[in-house]
Design a protein around this nucleic acid. Structure first.
Lengths: 144, 144
DNA sequence: TATGTAATTGAAAAAGATTATCAATTACAT
DNA sequence: ATGTAATTGATAATCTTTTTCAATTACATA
């Protein structure tokens, strides 16, 4: 159920957005990257291959992808507004502090916990955020 | 096990930090507030009673409290760097999107989930972040 | 209680991140 | 091929956060 370049492009087209060269390059970079990407990091990466791309366009396109539900914002770690491509289905993140790799996972018991919490506190719970951080196998090796 | 003004002050003294008027007012405000506080919000709040306090001092003192382990950063919602007073013990947050109230809770099964995840992925997990958002009883009433 | 000193403060400037403005360009329906 | 509305990049504007530095202040010591 991985999100593909084609799927993102099709969605843009369906909503009447134009497929500019800049948007295509940003979509390609976001979809194919395993790492968390801040707007600035994405801009630097793209600027090598597409020297005429503007930082503003990166911000605008990320905003657009976010509105369409294609982005997952990450919060843990230094960069609070980094993001990766992501499905709209509820899921959680495992993030490597070394290389920035992000692994999605799903945990069935969250729903149960949410139910208990709502009952105990009287809250109506709308959303949640769960992120684990640590070091992947590769980066752990590098640390030794 | 709530953190008190006296405890924070004692810790500052123990580490050789001076107890200035500004620091005391910031500590008082942070400890006594139930809400999430951004640096700017805290500054505005304090500025009424202590007109000569500077925004920079608010930033500096919050940084100090953070280093000493007295702050919990919140990530969910618009303001990504809001904080509350918090214990160093691992715990999670339940945040009201209406009034900003923050409830701490602890969930034993997180350790178990962390273990499973580490085993499945080969990660060495160092930390995690769990936040639920929704509406408390009062704010839910207001929405109707 | 007075005094010396190093930590702390506030103002101003600098540095970063993000958003708004607007003329020039471009995708795409026709 | 063409017209038009969306999109873009450069620039400026806005916010947030950090640095710098002279003036002030807490507090240990006499």
């Amino acid at each position: 159920m991985k999100i593909t370049e084609a799927r993102v492009k099709a969605t843009l087209r369906r909503y009447g957005y134009k497929l500019t060269r800049q948007r295509r390059s940003i979509i390609k970079a976001v979809v194919s990257s395993e790492d968390r990407l801040t707007p600035a990091a994405l801009y630097n990466k793209l600027h090598q291959d597409y020297p005429d791309i503007g930082l503003v366009t990166v911000y605008r396109t990320l905003g657009l992808l976010d509105n369409l539900g294609f982005l997952c914002k990450l919060h843990t770690g230094g960069d609070c507004h980094a993001c990766t491509i992501g499905t709209p289905e509820p899921h959680h993140h495992l993030i490597c502090s070394g290389c920035g790799k992000v692994i999605d996972f799903f945990c069935r018991s969250m729903a149960e916990l949410e139910g208990n919490l709502a009952e105990e506190t009287g809250f109506t719970i709308k959303d949640h955020l769960l992120e684990f951080t640590g070091y992947c196998q590769n980066c752990r090796k590098d640390l030794m």
